[in-house]
Computed example of a mutant assay.
Amino acid sequence: MEAKYTPTLVNIGGRRLALKTAGEGVPTVVFEMGLGIAASTYDTIAGQIAALTRVVWYDRAGLGQSDPAPIPRTIQDLVLDLHTLLQKATLPSPYVLVGHSMGGHIVRLYRERYPDEVAALVLIDASHEDQRERYLAVLPPQPNACPDLAHLRHIWESRWVDSRQNAEQIDNLANSALLRSCHNLGNLPLVVLSRGCPMRDPAKYPSGLIEAMERLWLQMQRELAQLSSQSCHLIASKSGHLIHEDEPTLIVDLVRQMVVQVREQMKR
């Protein structure tokens, strides 16, 4: 039977975040989900990792059982929330930070702000700070003849920059600017896991467009891997963007390997 994890409401200063923890040991694995995704989505994955070490996952402000926060928000606000949460809950570093999609932005900025606390990063089909500009460069400028294409261009041209149109009221333009100001990761252990299947059906769009966008995505994933001299880039060949649904065991295995690697480094 699958374990049920009841969150603890932790006051981080006038607001409460719903925190889940399991397991014991170091380093502590901390999950950051994609935009609008509640912590419960990762219950099974976190539970399997808990057999090896302590694992932490939580609902960001306004999601699940967590209290809302002033909006709009940026990843700088989310990083401060996470740092305060870990301190208030007495969950000490070192951390292996695991970020999916926009969660990749959060864990990268966390490492920039608190480098001594972070032992390793795992990026799961993580967003790239330049993705909007690169996608718009290949999207046809007059998509009216194809409704799906018109919608896709609307996403990247308008909706992506309007914080009112996403589940957490996140300012994506501010996020990209924050990431561009970050340093590289030096020799920090880093795993980049990227999707192997396209997010959209190529048949619904002009010939070659989705394939071109996926090539751009793969190039951006390679660039993320180049942030560290001690990195590994892997492809989830059976997965779209939601790798935690398509190939969850792959995430579990990679995080476990990273925990073992960090423990070996801690012995030196």
Rank of each mutant, 00 (worst) to 15 (best):
E2Y: 13
E2M: 12
T6N: 05
P7G: 12
I12L: 03
I12Q: 05
L19V: 01
K20Q: 14
F31H: 10
E32F: 09
M33Q: 01
G34V: 09
L35W: 07
D43G: 00
I49D: 03
A50K: 09
A51W: 09
V56L: 08
A61N: 10
G62V: 10
G64H: 07
D67T: 07
D67C: 07
Q76E: 12
D77G: 00
L78M: 13
L80W: 14
H83G: 02
L85M: 07
L85Q: 03
L86V: 04
Q87K: 13
A89N: 13
S93C: 14
G103F: 05
I106A: 09
V107W: 02
L109K: 14
L109G: 05
Y110V: 03
R113E: 01
Y114V: 09
V118E: 02
V118D: 03
L121Y: 08
V122Y: 03
I124G: 08
I124M: 09
D125W: 02
D125L: 04
R132Q: 14
Q142W: 03
D148F: 05
L149W: 01
A150Q: 14
A150N: 15
L152I: 05
H154E: 15
W156H: 06
R159N: 05
V161G: 03
R164H: 13
E168N: 00
D171Y: 05
N175Y: 04
S176I: 03
H183N: 12
G186L: 04
N187E: 10
P189N: 06
L190Q: 05
V191G: 01
V191K: 04
C197Y: 00
M199Y: 10
R200W: 11
D201S: 08
P202G: 03
Y205D: 12
P206V: 02
L209Q: 10
I210L: 06
M213P: 03
M213W: 02
L218Y: 09
R222Q: 14
L227A: 07
S228L: 08
S229V: 09
C232E: 13
I235C: 10
S237Q: 14
I243Q: 06
L250C: 01
D253M: 02
D253Q: 13
D253T: 11
V255W: 06
Q257T: 13
Q257G: 15
M266A: 14
R268N: 11
